[in-house]
Design a protein around this nucleic acid. Structure first.
Lengths: 217, 217
DNA sequence: GTCTATAAACAGATAGAC
DNA sequence: GTCTATCTGTTTATAGAC
C-alpha cells in the first residue's frame, strides 16, 4: 500500500518532459498534442486540464527549463577573487563545457534543443527564459571577461565579444548539418568535437588578447 | 492587345514569392496553403497544380533561392591573383557585406530568412541549396583564407575557422532578440549594426593573425 | 485526475466545370 | 490555367461520465 504503487500518478510531469523533447525535436507547430499525450502515456485532455492548452504546455516547458537552469547558475560564483589569468582560464572552461554539451550526444540533450528552437522562434518563451537564465549567465561571463581583459565593465564591446564567442558554439550546433557536409564528416564523435572545440578556444584566446591590448592602450 | 494586358498571368511566381516570405516569417509548419494562396492572390488549388503540393512549393522555393544566389557567386572570382593582404581585405569585405545583409532591414530580406529557417530545419531543402550555394561559397572563401594565412588548403582547420567567422554573423541574426535585450537596444539601425560589424571584423583579424603565425612556425 | 466521445475548425488535396 | 465545391483526415479543445 505504498504511495508510489498507486496506478494514477499525475501526468503533469510526463507531459512536460514529452513536450520538451518533441517541441525540441520537431518544433512547436509540427508537434501535435496527440503525439505529446502518446509519448507521455497520458490522455489528450490532460494537456488542457493541467496547462489550459497546447500553448500553456509550451510555457510550462519554458518555466521548467528556467527552473532547471537556475540551479546551474550557482557554478559561476566568487568571480571577484580571481586573477586575470584565472578568469581567462575559467572562460575557456565554460566555453569548452558549452561545446561538449551542445555538440556531443545531440539526441539526448532535450533542454538545449528546446531552447535553441525557442531562440529562433523568439516569442513569449524568451520572456520566461531570458531573465532566469541568459541574463544572469551573461552577467557572470561579462564579469569574467572584464576581469580577464581589463575592458570597461558592461560596455557594449564586452557583451558583443561575449556573444560572438557563444555564437560560434551555437552556430556549430544549429548548422551542424551544413558544417558536417562541408567537412564530409559522416558521424560526429569526441574526436570531431575536439577539433571544433580547439578552433573555438583558439579564437577565444585571440579575441581576449586583442581586447587586452585595446584596453591597455 | 498587348500580351501583358491579359488578366490571367500565371500564379506560379507569385506563389513562390509568397511561400518564400511566409515560410521565412513563420516557418513551414506554421504556414497554411490558404495563407500562401491568399498572399499570392491565387487559388488554393494552384499550389497543387504548379508544384504538386505544399512540400513541392517548399522545394520550388529552395530552387528559386539557389538560382538567385548562384548569380551572386560570380563576385568571388580571380582569387588566385591576389596577394595575402588583398585576400585578407577581401575576406573583411565579404564578412562586412554579410553583416549588412543579415542585420539591416531584417523584414525585407526574404531569401536570408527562408534560408535560416531551412538551415535550422535541415531537411531535403539543404540538398538543393547546399551544392548550389554553400559549397561554392565556402570553397571560394577557403581559397581566400588559405591565400591570406598560408595554411594548408582544404584542411579541416581552415574550413572550421571560416565557419566560426560566418557563425558569429549568423548567430547575431538568429539570436538578435536575445542580443538586443541584453544590450537594451530598442531598435537596431546602422549605428548598432556598425558596432556589431566592428566586433566581428576585429575577431576576424585576430583569427587570421593567429592562423598566420600557426602556419609559419 | 482521468477517461470517452464529440464538437468545431482547420489542414492539404482533388474532381470536374469552365 | 483557374475556378468552385467538396472530400478526407487531423487539429485543438471541451463536455460530461466515472
Amino acid at each position: 500500500m505504498a504511495r508510489n504503487e498507486q496506478k494514477s500518478k499525475s501526468t503533469h510531469d510526463p507531459l512536460i518532459n514529452a513536450g520538451l523533447r518533441l517541441f525540441g525535436e520537431s518544433g512547436y507547430d509540427a508537434t501535435s498534442t496527440r503525439q505529446i499525450a502518446l509519448a507521455a502515456d497520458a490522455n489528450i485532455s490532460a494537456i488542457s486540464y493541467h496547462f489550459g492548452g497546447k500553448e500553456g504546455l509550451r510555457l510550462a516547458c519554458a518555466e521548467n527549463v528556467a527552473k532547471t537552469l537556475t540551479t546551474t547558475i550557482t557554478t559561476f560564483a566568487a568571480i571577484e577573487s580571481q586573477t586575470p589569468e584565472e578568469a581567462a582560464l575559467e572562460l575557456e572552461h565554460i566555453v569548452s563545457a558549452l561545446v561538449q554539451m551542445l555538440l556531443l550526444q545531440p539526441q539526448a540533450k532535450t533542454i538545449p534543443q528546446f531552447m535553441l528552437r525557442e531562440i529562433v522562434q523568439a516569442e513569449e518563451v524568451l520572456d520566461i527564459i531570458f531573465p532566469n537564465f541568459f541574463e544572469p549567465i551573461h552577467k557572470s561571463l561579462s564579469q569574467l571577461w572584464v576581469r580577464a581583459t581589463g575592458q570597461d565593465a558592461n560596455s557594449d564591446a564586452v557583451m558583443l565579444s561575449l556573444f560572438a564567442v557563444v555564437g560560434q558554439v551555437i552556430y556549430f550546433r544549429v548548422s551542424r548539418e551544413i558544417v558536417y557536409r562541408r567537412l564530409k564528416w559522416d558521424s560526429v564523435g569526441p574526436t570531431e568535437v575536439q577539433t571544433v572545440e580547439s578552433i573555438i578556444l583558439t579564437n577565444l584566446r585571440a579575441t581576449l588578447e586583442v581586447a587586452k591590448k585595446g584596453s591597455s592602450q
